[in-house]
């Protein structure tokens, strides 16, 4: 039912109701209705009125249910008092390292590894090595003393052993997060092989 039809129907019903209301108040008109027959059928004039009461209760409960389920619609103005927040630098890494281990997808792992690799290569470049030498040192793992960090970024890494994985899993950690954390620590401390 379209809105216009619904509104027209509503207006018609209101008109009918108002007219009926008015007719009821006019003396003598209402007696034309076959109320006596209905009262005889129902048994008691109280039951007749009681029926109206019952209908009123039903409509009432429908209204209460609808109101309880509905929402007030009002404007939500902006929040001008504070500066809109921006993320911290490095928040992405923090979030990935802190996530529940099962929640890391392959793309997340690749992202971490790539980012740390780039940082490690930059670190090597910083120490004066050429690009090729820097990449080679990171691939071969000679850029740092830390064995975990080495394995994480090395090109031919075979990954962790099963026992290592189990040990980490018992601690509620994943290999990627553990190794990434170690690597990040190495890098952040300006570390690596001097």
């Amino acid at each position: 039912m379209s809105a216009a039809v619904r509104r027209a129907g509503w207006a018609v019903l209101v008109a009918v109701g108002v007219v009926a209301f008015g007719l009821a108040l006019l003396p003598g008109v209402a007696t034309l209705l076959p109320v006596g027959a209905v009262v005889a059928w129902v048994g008691n004039d109280y039951f007749l009125l009681g029926a109206f009461g019952g209908v009123a209760l039903v409509v009432l409960s429908w209204m209460v249910a609808r109101r309880a389920a509905g929402q007030i619609e009002q404007a939500a103005p902006p929040d001008p008092e504070t500066v809109p927040d921006a993320p911290r630098p490095g928040e992405g890494v923090d979030e990935l390292l802190g996530r529940w281990p099962g929640g890391l997808s392959d793309a997340d792992r690749d992202y971490l590894r790539e980012r740390l690799r780039t940082a490690a290569v930059y670190g090597e470049l910083d120490r004066g090595r050429s690009r090729a030498a820097a990449r080679e040192r990171v691939d071969s793992g000679t850029w740092t003393d830390d064995p975990v960090a080495t394995r994480f970024l090395a090109a031919d890494s075979s990954g962790p052993t099963v026992t290592e994985r189990l040990r980490l899993a018992l601690r509620g950690d994943s290999w990627t997060q553990h190794a990434a954390r170690a690597t990040a620590r190495e890098l952040a401390d300006g570390g690596g092989d001097r």
Binding site: R88, P89, G90, E91, G92, D94, Y122, A188
Partner: peptide, 18 residues
């Protein structure tokens, strides 16, 4: 705008310096 409070932030600071 880097900071030093967490591992990720220290990493970001180091990356920027590099």
């Amino acid at each position: 705008v880097t900071a030093e409070e967490s591992l990720g932030q220290r990493l970001a600071r180091q990356e920027r310096t590099m």
